[in-house]
């Protein structure tokens, strides 16, 4: 005897389908071209000596980043999208709390708050009064971006190395990390993420998308 309690509830279940739609069928890139083994392209350096030096620099940079327990920065993001005749620009504040939480609070042109915590992203579209929770692994492109940003912010080298092949250049006070996703599903969206910084501060994150579009986020230290 179950009576009416369980009837007609499931109808709404199909809403579930929507997230899948968003990630799989409509918006997925049509080109299933395999990434040209991103692993090998950057990490194999010819000189063993150079590799050691790079290794030391990478560890140095990551150690500096790891020492930061919280940070706040103003950002300006420019998106270079082929569809648009001019870059789309947005700006706001970025707040990081060690080890794995950060918030990207866009203020212009439309207010939006993106909070990343553990493996969930909360998108609060203030302008449209719409809130969305996203399980990060569901969206490879998002996962690549989140992994890169969070890995760099926390200075967690093993975590970063799990998801990317890393090339480091510059020196300890002015450095650049070139991250290439190892995971084919992520590489299908994101070809590389460049993270540049001084000492323990990240001042730019540039994302190169597989379709040629890119975005550049520049940061300046903000009063805490």
């Amino acid at each position: 005897m179950t009576f009416g309690k369980n009837s007609l509830n499931v109808i709404a279940a199909l809403k579930a389908v929507a997230m899948m739609l968003a990630s799989l069928s409509i918006m997925a890139p049509v080109s299933p071209m395999a990434p040209t083994s991103p692993t090998s392209s950057t990490s194999s350096t010819s000189s063993l000596h150079a590799a050691d030096a790079n290794d030391a620099l990478l560890k140095n940079v990551m150690a500096r980043l790891a020492s930061v327990k919280s940070a706040k920065a103003d950002f300006v993001e420019k998106r270079f999208v082929k569809l648009l005749n001019a870059p789309a620009e947005s700006s706001g504040v970025l707040i990081y709390t060690a080890p794995d939480r950060f918030e990207k609070h866009t203020k212009k042109p439309l207010e939006e708050r993106m909070t990343v915590e553990r493996d969930m992203v909360t998108l609060d579209n203030v302008a449209r009064k719409k809130q969305q929770q996203i399980f990060i692994p569901q969206f490879p492109a998002l996962a690549a971006i989140v992994d890169a940003m969070r890995g760099a912010l926390s200075g967690n080298l093993p975590q970063l190395q799990q998801a990317f092949s890393i090339a480091v250049s510059g020196n300890a006070t002015r450095w650049k990390l070139h991250l290439v996703p190892l995971e084919a599903s992520q590489y299908a969206y994101i070809h590389a993420v460049d993270v540049t910084g001084r000492d323990d501060f990240i001042d730019a994150i540039e994302i190169f998308q597989s379709d040629g579009d890119r975005s550049l986020m520049s940061m300046t230290r903000a009063a805490p």
Partner: peptide
């Protein structure tokens, strides 16, 4: 396109600039 979702939306915009599919998805997702 300038928002977080822009990364995904841009595939759809050339076919659906009036955002019909997005709207239906919003309804679906609620």
């Amino acid at each position: 396109l300038s928002q977080s979702a822009g990364l995904f939306a841009k595939k759809l915009v050339p076919r659906d600039p009036t955002g019909e599919v997005m709207r239906m998805l919003d309804d679906l997702v609620a």
